[in-house]
Amino acid sequence: MYSASDLRKGLKIEVDGAPYVITDFQFVKPGKGQALYRCKIKNLITGGTVDKTYRAVEKIDKPNLEERDLIYSYADADQFVFMDSSTYEQIHIGNDILGDQRWFLVEDMEVQMLFFNNQPIEVTLPFFVERTIAETEPGVRGDTATNVQKPAKLDNGYEIQVPLFINEGDRVRIDTRTGKYADRVSKGF
């Protein structure tokens, strides 16, 4: 159990049987009244946000969360299979949890998976992943300074905006947190 004085931005708590993270936090004390803690909390499963007010005397449940390091193995129909390298346990998860992150999975990639009551609820990839550009208009030389971008397709079909100088076959780095192009690793041949 947490006390109200433990509350802070980023703390994960359990409310009505669901895991939440505190996204906004404010200490308030109305007039001559009691100390209160105003929180905005985000449901870690649905992403929904609600406001909560806690009194100083309140106790808040600690969620049963576990973070594990896993290795991405392979895709199986619409499931993605991860493996615990110490126990060889295989964990299957779907698009509902991965979302757009599924486009950035690379075989043998190390990921962090968050479990709530032993159910996977969130996957965190390495911040940057390298992929090859499969399709884009020919590059324009000498235009490295402008912010103009053009559409491109990765080798797995994911569409992304890239700078004009990028060519088919180039290796690029993508920020998995935003799903956006970060920089070019090497030129294609």
Binding site: V28, P30, G31, G33, L36
Partner: peptide, 14 residues
């Protein structure tokens, strides 16, 4: 009601 007064204050009045 002191407790209700405070909670409604921060949630509804402010």
């Amino acid at each position: 009601e002191a407790d209700r007064f405070d909670i409604d204050w921060v949630e509804r009045i402010v």
